[in-house]
Every structure is written in C-alpha cells, then in structure tokens.
Nucleic acid binder design. Structure first.
Lengths: 213, 213, 213, 213
DNA sequence: CATGAATGAGGCTTCATTCAT
DNA sequence: GATGAATGAAGCCTCATTCAT
C-alpha cells in the first residue's frame, strides 16, 4: 500500500480504501470484484494498481489498519485506575462503542480472516489474541479479588466478547435504543453474569438443580 | 435439488451435499468453485448438474435443510414443562449442543446469508427470527414472573444468542473443556446475568455508579 | 496436455497444437496471445483450457514432442554401418532434411528455449546435448581414424550444426535449389572442411601465415 | 530517439539503451516490459518517454545503431589488399570477433527482426543483405580465380555466416578456448571447406594447391 | 527532466452452466 | 447418470502510453 502523503493521489488511495471497506462489508472479499471497486471509486480497473499492489493486499491493509487502531484505542480506554468492575465496565463501553462506530471494519476483520493469506492471517490472529487477553486479564484479577466468580476466565471472556460483538449485527443508530442504553443493558448483563454466588443462600439462579458429570 | 430417493445416484447427491458443506465451510460460498466440489466428490463438473440445479440452489438447499432441522430440534428440546429458568437452561443446553455438533451447517447458515438470492434470503431470515423468538418468549415470561430482570428482552436475547453461538468458533471436542462443562459454564453465566437486582441492597454490581439518561 | 485418443476432442487438441506451432513460429511465444490462438482454431479462449493446462505447457509440449521425434529419427538415420565419412554424410543429409521439413518445430525448439520455465528448460537442453553428442562422436571417430583433422571436435561440431541449421532460415522448397542439391553442397563443404592437411606440403590453405598461440 | 547531446540527460538516455540491450537480450523484446526497463535504469516508467518515443523505436534504434556500426567496421576490416583467401580470413576474423564482443547487439539484431514494424524491418534486412553481399563477393572472386570451388556462392556464404555466427551462442570468454584459437579453428574449417577438388587425384577431400600469395 | 497517476486495451486463466454422446 | 468439450462472461493483473504537476 503505497500512500503518498499530500499528493493528489492520496485522495484516490483513500477513496479506494473506503470503497473497499464498503464493498467487502456488503458482499464479502471474494464476492467483491475489482471492477466493482473501480466503478465505485470512479476510475479504471487498472488504475487501482497505482494505489494497491494486490486485491489481497488491500484486504490485509484494511484489516491491519483497523486492528492497529483498535488496540491503540483499547489501550487508551483501559488506561484508567479502578477495580476490575470499573475496568470491565470500561471495556464493555469501549468495545460496544467501537463495534458500533466502526461496524464495517470490525465485521471484515473478523469475517474475512479466512480470506487472508497464511502470513497475514497469523499476524492478525496474533493481534486479536492480544485484544482478548486484555479482557481475560480483567476477569482474572476480578476473580482473584473475589469480585467475580467464573469457572474459566478464557471461556467467560469469549462469551462476553461474542455477546458484545453481536451488537454490530443488529444495532441501528436510528433504532429504538440509544447507544448508551445498549451499553447500559449489556454492562449489567455481563457484570451480573459474573457475580459470585450469594453466600447466604448457597445457591443461585445459575446453578443447575442436579449435578452433571 | 432433485433427490432421486432409492436410486443409486442418491449416494452421489448426498456426497455432493456433504462435500459442499465442507468446502463452503472452509472457503466460503463464493470461494468454492464447482470444480473443487466435483473433485472432492470424485466426479466431473458437468455431472454435478445431474444432482443440483445451480450452485446457488445447493447453498439454499443446505441452509434450508439445516434450518428445518434446527427448528424441529428446538421444538423437541423445549417441549418440556417447567418455569422459565428451566426452559432457559434447556435452551442453552440445546443451542450449545447443536452449534457444536452441527458446527458447519450453523456457520454457513449464518455467514452465507448474504450469498443468498433475495427470495431465499427472506425465507431463511424468517426462519431465523422464529428461532430467536422462542428465546425471547422465555425471557419475557421470566420477566413477567419476576424471575428475570432485563430492560429489553429482545436485546437480552440477542446478547445470549451471540454469546452461545460464539462457542462454535473456538470449541474443540478434544480440547480442555468437555461439552457439558461448557454448557454448565454458559448456563450459569447466562442465567445469573438475568438475575433481578438484590432486594436488600437495592443495587447490584451491574449498575453504573453514576446515573445515565 | 491431456490427449484423449479417439475422442472427438482430440481433433481440437491437435488443431491447437498445429495452430500454436504456426503462431509461435510466426510471432514468437511471448507475442502470440491465446486470443489469437483460439481464433485460429475457431473456438473461444476459455475452451483452450479443455486441451492445454497452460500457455507455457503448450510450448513445452510442442518442443518436447519435437525433440523426442528428432532424437528418434536421428537414431534411425544413423543406424547404418559405415566409416565416419559415410556417417557424417548421413548426418548432414538427415539434419538438413529434418530442418527443412520440420522447419517450424526446429525453429521454435531453439528460439523459444528461453521462454521455458527452468525445469522445462533443463530437460530440453539435455536432449539437445544428446543430439549434438552424436555428431561430435562421429567427428571424434573420424579423427581417430585419420579421416578428419580438427583441433577441437566439439567446436567443429558446433560449427557444422550452426551451418546446417541455418538452412531452415533461407531455404524455400520452391526456390532455385532442390533439397538434394542443398544437401549435396553442404555435405561437400562440411566434409572438405574437415579434411586432413595435405601430407606433401605439410600445410594447407586454412593455416594462417603467422602463428597464433 | 531524441538524444540531447551534451545535456545531463544524455547519460540517462545511454543508460536506457544499455539496459534495453541487456533486457531484450535476456528476455526478448516482447517479454521485456518498460517497467522492467525503468526499474533497471532506476527511474519511473513515465520518465522513459523523455528519452525514447516508443518501445518499438527503442528496439529499432538499438538494431539500427548496431547495423551501422557493423557495416562500418566491416568496411574497415576489409579495406586491405589481398587475394580472396586473405580477404576471407579477414572476414572470418572480423565476424567472429565482432560477434563475440558485441554478442548482445548481434543476437538482438537477428532474433528480434520479426518484432520490427514492416518499415523498420525492411530497412534492417536491406543492411543485412549488404553485409552478406560482402562475403558472397569474396567467394565469387575466389571462384573466378580458381582458389575456391563451390557450386553456389550465396549458399556457401549463408553456410559460412551461420557457422561463424553460431559462435556467439556458445563462446565464453573465460572458457577453454581463446578467441584467437576459435578464429583459427574456424578459419581453417571455412577455407578448407571451399578448397577446389584436387585436379590430380580427382578426390574431393580437400587437398591444398601449392601456393598462395 | 522526473514523477505519479490515469487510461483503455489486452494479458492468462477460471468461472458456472449447457449439452451431445 | 456420467463425461468431456464448448460457451461467454468475468476474474485479477500488466501493458504501453499520456500528461498535469
């Protein structure tokens, strides 16, 4: 991805990235043709190659750029002091917000992983793991302090991530619920879900009546 | 999808469906070529057309067959009597099990929705909504009875579905956790997450310290 | 190069090979487009791929087939008994004849060597060396018997081969000279050129007045 | 081919010609792209057009320049007095030397003839004929004087040219044989090959006449 | 002069689909 | 039913060339 900053062509490059984002989001990487992409940008197919080196490279560039931004933003969002509950709430808020605002990047970065060449795939998956790790660490700290109670922090983290990420598949900014409302709802559902069992009663709603093997 | 039941070719037809499932799961519908498919089955490309009418039709058939089976199985799984908590636990167990066992069908039915022609798309989405509706109803009933407390049952249902469905992206049968263990963990996390706020304290972990509008 | 003997498609395959031979001879491998080739054959471009696997493969197939035939024919032509002069005359006759009759194959096999992929290149060059070796051996035997006198049999062989091969660049079947006449002329020129120096004078026309190192 | 003599850009122009020579020799005219050429020179593709007018023009310029130089050098090499044998030896020496030293120009001028546009093609072929004519004239004079005996001077000339030109396909400056040695070998082979049949013996293996000047 | 971007044609190859055998 | 061959569209990419900056 050669990006000649300041030059006139930078505008075209950016337009290609934007159009690529849109079309890949809409139709998928495989289903998007460079013909479509060029048409969307308003240039000839061959001209694309003044800005990208390969269709595959465009995909990688889009995903990589997104992941970089995501990790950076997460760092900033979690650079607060507070107990695990506070951090978890910050995480939920950040994750949901980011996944709503950058809906398309987020979707592509996940659903087109398999379209990446092995090398690129590995690189992105590694970044994704770093992201997940941040949440897992919060859960682990919460368990240590007795604020959360989960049988497996990794599994819990995966569950939370799936739940939150799902937001970007149905949330509409113009819909019934505001973004903050959704964050509120999910924060409660997530944090309550990790609550330790009540000491007094000895059981809670989540425990199965009979034991399983 | 012409299936000549009983004839010798039925075996081939089934082989095509099986191979199609595998290849679409691996590479995606757009990325799978009928040449690959034929090769996987061990026949020539042209011969495929004795069994399928169209690549698109094969996709639809696979998804439709899956959705029929899914809804039927859900019916069976929820045909028990019990309070919402019991039903919810049954739902979680069913959903996770099905998504682990029929991992590929489930994945395709979701990720290749966009590859369906409008008519087919509508049909499948309607079925999917019926599925989601079953969970939402359980939550609504639970709220009515005071066993759950959520601000929005649809949103809660989406969250739960996302969480549970995520299982099929990381679960490995040979992994650290057994299927039952995973069901156990998620049941607790889901049901606890819906628990009403403690009456005594008047607030719970999930509520934000400051008020929101 | 899949060649299904007896099937209807074999005719097309052969037509492609023939047209490929013609076009590569005329314009060169790089300059020949598959569009041209398909047009020459009278089919669609894509249909070519029912008969060839690759443009490169077509080239290799043409050259390899030629080299096989050439070596086989040489074997037959030299399967006579006789002294080196007789064998050399047989070689000249064979080489010139073959290079006139199979003018295009011969030309391609030489001029498009550089268009072959490394593996293919090596294979063909090895065959070519076997061909050259046959001539060199005749010269060596002739020298042993005192019938020829050359300072370096390999160089002499190269010279002879170049001279004879050049025929196919200018010979016209309808031209002034018959094929047999040309063979006659070249036989004499080649064989005379290898004649030992006259015993009486101790020197001959080919020796330079001043000595060289 | 605009050559701004004396200007700074002349260096670039010369670099382009040199790189073009190299790349066309290596890959052929059709296979060489202007992108490669520009990269080899170290400039951008567009910049080439400040120095050449067309890819075709570059080819023609390279060949034409070479042919001019070749004919001029031949004139100089043959501007000696002497009998046909002396002249022939001078020709052989010159031709071999030139074809070894200017290996790439020579090769291109021959192998890329077919890549020239009709006009250019005719022009170069005419020059080539003038070159060949010089050799033919020597042979004709030699025949007139009874020093050579060939049935057809044109054919003999073609044969000799082919033989000598072949040198540039296998000669390596660092190889087993020095350039002078090769010239020596070929001079003898060529001249001996033209020797008249011995009057006394009536055989044709090339006996030397008694004297030469 | 050099540059980078644009063009439009065309490169090789693969695609889903059809159909005579 | 299966096959191999044909189709025509489309896939990604590279080409030589032009031109404003």
């Amino acid at each position: 991805m050669a990006r000649t900053i300041g030059s006139h062509g930078a505008k075209t490059t950016e337009a290609i990235r934007k159009a690529g984002l849109k079309l890949i989001y809409q139709h998928g990487y495989e289903a998007m043709s460079l013909r479509q992409l060029a048409a969307e940008v308003g240039i000839q197919v061959g001209s694309l190659y003044n800005h990208i080196s390969t269709k595959q490279d465009l995909l990688f560039d889009l995903i990589k750029t997104h992941m970089d931004a995501l990790l950076l933003a997460l760092d900033r969002a979690l650079s607060i002091t507070g107990d695990p509950v506070t951090l978890l709430r910050a995480f939920v808020s950040f994750h949901v917000t980011y996944h709503i605002v950058r809906k398309r990047e987020v979707f592509i970065a996940y659903s087109e992983l398999r379209s990446l060449e092995p090398n690129h795939y590995e690189e992105i998956v590694a970044m994704r793991r770093r992201y997940e790790r941040r949440l897992t660490e919060i859960l682990e700290e919460g368990c240590r302090l007795g604020m959360f109670e989960v049988q497996d922090c990794r599994v819990a983290a995966y569950g939370i991530l799936s739940m939150l990420t799902g937001v970007c598949t149905w949330f509409r900014p113009t819909g019934r619920l505001s973004r903050d409302k959704v964050i509120d709802i999910y924060s409660r559902q997530v944090i309550t879900g990790l609550a330790p069992r009540s000491r007094e009663t000895g059981r809670d709603l989540g425990e199965a009546p009979e034991s399983r093997s």
